[in-house]
Design a protein around this nucleic acid. Structure first.
Length: 614
RNA sequence: GGGGGCGUAGCUCAGUUGGUUAGAGCGCUAGCCUGUCACGCUAGAGGUCGCGGGUUCGAGCCCCGUCGCUCCCGCCA
């Protein structure tokens, strides 16, 4: 018999009754009835009930066992007595009557029990991650993560992609985030950077003629964490294709993503064909470039309506005169909400969003009647602090624009375009949640397309790249090369061939058709105010490669951790990462980061200068 | 860098208007219990109320500061 086990703790069924078996695992739960003692023995595969009574030679040892001790148990499989079967367990028909117990690894008192569904503070969970990982939910998430990555791999390979491994120790890349630096021993004063993404490498793979690249790629960024943004490191499904248009990338990626989601969504519906929403449209309708399409609320612009001469609401009129806008957020059925609900939303807008407020009009009745002549008339009953400043005909226009029904409420977000859109987007999310309009049990995807190539940096009064500087501008090359850098309007109106995949309000990935022409690249950087020397110094190698026969190419890089997070139904990446860091980018279990020894620092030619206290 | 929330037993939490000796459940220790599967029953141990200062006759509770965790903004595909 094997030293540790003949079966796993999830293996035994009725057909094993009568056989001698050997199991090893953790004492999940022990129930001592004095005369008879039950041990739920747990391993990766499941739980099997072990029984010992005073007739068993193992009884004495069994009485000393405690939670989470690791033991080996020899015994005979027997059918549980009638009426004591446990239908909750796959092994619930049988039990093992213990003949011999060997303690393989005793456990001290646990800082955090493994058994049960109790929640624990993050720092304790992270410090004792190995205990947390024994628990069912995290254990299942990590296994699911592996299965998802397997599925992604075969789906990619099936589409003719090859997996490559790119360097971890490399040079700084142009993603725009802060780099993690690694000091060089051989080159005093010089540093490697960990890749923020294998962006340049995958483009070089295309220039090398490999045609279809992918990698489950570790990426490193020294930026502050969020619930959906791991500190330090994360994984991307990084992919790149040669001789492709945006359509080709969509056609390659969408089936992989949809397929993976359908495979692991446990029956929840997945968008059949991802709709494409231009960036500008998403900004108006959803107030964000990562809309949650499970939320049925659609924002509309009502600047024109509020600017109507018959409207006397000057707070908005003045804003519009100063170049601002007004967005309307419909809240279906919200007329039934108490006054305090509206006040709370208004308080939220003021305190959390730093807005002047969230005005609203309650549309109590909107009755459309077809008059004898065939013309539509409608009776309106509107209420709320703003209603009296807006005449009926304008109210009617707003109601129609926003698609309102009787009993709906229209909230208003006013201000500069970005601020008003952002508040409207946040209000849309909040109202959708409060009114319970969001069906959590589905995966709603979309592509966001037509991102602006540049944006105006108000602080520095200059034009910046708005996203990835390596994207191809969506303009005929000759026209682009002829652009006047001073023609700010044309430049800010320019789109890049760049796209995002969004699912349930989570940005899953972003990609682009790359700029593979050095002349266009130089022009693109010149528009953003980089002279050729800077470009040459920072991306000289890349430029050179592009000048020696580069195929048109493009790709995308969906975030693995976020995909797994969505499919596990979690709202924090830590629940799907094996050994995550805390929000301050510390590994509480391993004690990272830690100080280096003076010998290490000497070898690296590094002197540490700590920030002054206070 | 900024804002919000939280911090009381190993863990999850309660703690009234500032008032005697700070409680419960789980866990732990001991005892009892022969069919449980969140077993049950009895008893016990376990506390610098995050830390420091202040107000007060008296502070877990009020004030100031500080530290830690977390969520968000900034930042970041």
């Amino acid at each position: 018999m094997h030293r540790y086990r003949s079966h796993t703790c999830g293996a035994l069924r009725a057909d094993a009754i009568g056989t001698e078996v050997r199991l090893s695992g953790w004492c999940h739960r022990i129930r001592d009835h004095g005369g008879v003692l039950f041990i739920d023995l747990r391993d990766h595969y499941g739980i099997t009930q072990v029984v010992a009574d005073p007739d068993s030679p193992a009884f004495k040892v069994a009485e000393t066992l405690r939670s989470e001790w690791v033991v080996r148990i020899d015994g005979k499989v027997r059918r549980r007595p009638g009426g004591t079967e446990n239908p909750e367990l796959p092994t619930g028909e049988v039990e093992v009557y213990a003949r011999e117990i060997e303690v393989l690894g005793p456990a001290a008192e646990l800082p955090m029990p493994v058994f049960g569904e109790q929640e624990y503070p993050e720092d304790i969970r992270l410090k004792y991650r190995f205990l947390d990982l024994r628990r069912e939910r995290l254990h299942r998430n990590i296994i699911k993560r592996g299965a998802i990555i397997d599925s992604i791999r075969w789906r990619m390979k099936e589409q003719g992609f090859f997996e490559f491994q790119t360097p971890i120790l490399t040079a700084s890349s142009p993603e725009g985030a802060r780099d993690f630096l690694v000091p060089s021993r051989l080159h005093p004063g010089k540093f490697y950077a960990l890749p923020q993404a294998p962006q340049q490498f995958k483009q070089l793979v295309m220039i090398s003629g490999f045609d279809r690249y992918f990698q489950i790629a570790p990426c490193f960024r020294d930026e502050d964490a969020r619930a959906d943004r791991s500190p330090g490191e994360f994984y991307q499904l990084d992919l790149e294709m040669s001789f492709v248009t945006q359509e080709d990338v969509f056609a390659a990626v969408e089936p992989v993503i949809r397929g993976v989601f359908e495979e692991f969504a446990e029956g929840k519906p997945v968008t059949a064909k991802f709709p494409r929403i231009p960036y500008a449209e998403a900004s108006i309708k959803y107030g964000t470039d990562k809309p949650d399409l499970r939320n049925p609320i659609v924002i509309c612009d009502v600047s024109e309506e509020f600017n109507d001469p018959s409207v006397t609401f000057n707070a908005f009129k003045n804003l519009i005169k100063a170049g601002g806008i007004v967005r309307a957020i419909p809240a279906p059925g919200a007329a039934a909400q108490p006054r305090s609900w509206f006040d709370r939303l208004n308080d939220w807008a003021r305190s959390d969003m730093g807005a002047a407020g969230l005005g609203y009009i309650v549309f109590n009745t909107i009755e459309r009647e077809t008059a004898a002549g065939g013309a539509n008339t409608a009776r309106l009953g509107a209420a709320g602090p703003i209603a009296k400043f807006v005449p009926d005909n304008v109210l009617r226009r707003m109601a129609e624009k926003a698609g309102l029904n009787s009993g709906d409420v229209l909230f208003f977000s006013a201000g500069t375009e970005p601020a008003a859109a952002k508040l409207a987007g946040a209000a849309r999310t909040r109202i959708g949640e409060e009114l319970n309009l969001i069906d959590k049990d589905r995966f709603e995807f979309c592509w966001i397309v037509d991102f602006p190539m540049y944006e105006w940096n108000e602080e520095e009064k200059k034009i910046d790249f708005s996203h990835n500087p390596f994207s191809m501008p969506n303009m005929a090359p000759d026209a682009f090369l002829a652009l006047d850098p001073a023609d700010r309007d044309s430049i800010l109106a320019l789109r890049a061939i760049q796209y995002d995949i969004v699912c349930n309000g989570v940005e899953l990935s972003s990609g682009a058709i790359r700029n593979h022409r050095p002349d266009i690249m130089k022009k693109a950087f010149a528009i953003a105010g980089y002279d050729e020397a800077v470009l040459e110094q920072k991306f000289g190698g890349m430029l050179h490669a592009l000048s020696l026969g580069a195929p048109p190419h493009g790709g995308i890089a969906p975030g693995i951790d976020r995909i797994v997070m969505l499919l596990c139904g979690e709202d924090n990446l830590r629940e799907v990462v094996l050994f995550p860091m805390n929000q301050r980018a510390e590994d509480l279990m391993m004690g990272a980061p830690s100080e280096a020894t003076s010998k290490q620092l000497r070898e690296l030619h590094i002197r540490v200068v700590k920030p002054e206290q206070g």
